[in-house]
Design a protein around this nucleic acid. Structure first.
Lengths: 149, 149
DNA sequence: CTAAATTTGTTTGTGTGCAAATGGAATTCC
DNA sequence: GGAATTCCATTTGCACACAAACAAATTTAG
């Protein structure tokens, strides 16, 4: 019961941990701001769904898991994203002709049109996100982000 | 029906959108890497829960929403986080003496001990996350992150 | 060729995150 | 002092994100 009593054995606790200067916390806040800009500029789609469509446009017909790897989503996550895009008629899936495990995912014609209509605003989102930085700062920041990938 | 037919009115689509160079996508991947490091170094807690405990230690007794604002979580999010920490005996809630709306949240003694035991490893997580950058690069990167908050 | 290992997609469970709606409590403003 | 506003906490619903377990199909190794 003695260790329940709090005396000055408690040695002036090392308070020198400041959350606000930690990378992880700053990353979370910057991502929050970015996603808030995204939602304001492209309210009709989520950032994850847009990334999926943009990557699908880059890669053409690939399997669901392959698209997931290209967009940094695990199998469970990409499944849900594709499901939602499919239910909105923006993407479609077809069985692979020779490999019966695979599900080929592609943009629908409607998805292609929608994507083209969104690309300009997507660039604007990146622009707005980086707005507080000067041109050289932006380049350095993006270079650092790539190194930290 | 003519607009269903795809001829070369389609003007060599502007493919010049590369997901992998966009801030948002890079932010997501860097955050993923950071959280992966976090999970490896501090498997007993989530980054969000740790942030909540660390901030609670900094601020002392504050209301639930106040702690949420300090950790960049909305009311719904901080509630769930506190619930889980409370069910593990790391934090506790008490009604505010004069304001019956408020819920005062604090670290338990066990929470304080656990937090102190985690702080050193938390610093190591930040270190490992930034490891690919040189010292000047780290400073510039953190400064940029703060500007983008 | 066949057994073992791998790959693909799915499901379940847990943990953020945010929007919107709610109800109760405190504050402001006239 | 009372009405309007604001604040606090909660709940619900949706959308990631990942771990773990699974079945079916394919590939690899012996």
């Amino acid at each position: 019961m003695a260790d329940e009593i709090l005396v000055d054995t408690e040695p002036a606790r090392d308070e020198a941990y400041h959350l606000d200067t930690q990378v992880g916390f700053l990353l979370r806040k910057v991502t929050q701001r970015h996603l808030s800009i995204f939602g304001a500029v492209l309210p009709e789609i989520t950032a994850t769904q847009f990334a999926t469509m943009a990557k699908s446009c880059e890669l053409g017909a690939v399997s669901q898991n392959e698209l997931g790897r290209a967009t940094a989503m695990d199998a469970a996550t990409i499944k849900g994203v594709i499901d939602r895009l499919q239910s909105r008629g923006l993407m479609a899936t077809t069985p692979h002709p020779s490999d019966r495990r695979r599900l080929i995912v592609t943009l629908t014609e409607r998805g292609r049109v929608a994507l083209e209509a969104m690309k300009a605003r997507a660039r604007e989102i990146s622009e707005q996100t980086l707005a507080p930085l000067s041109l050289p700062e932006r380049r350095a920041f993006l270079r650092a982000l790539k190194k930290l990938t």
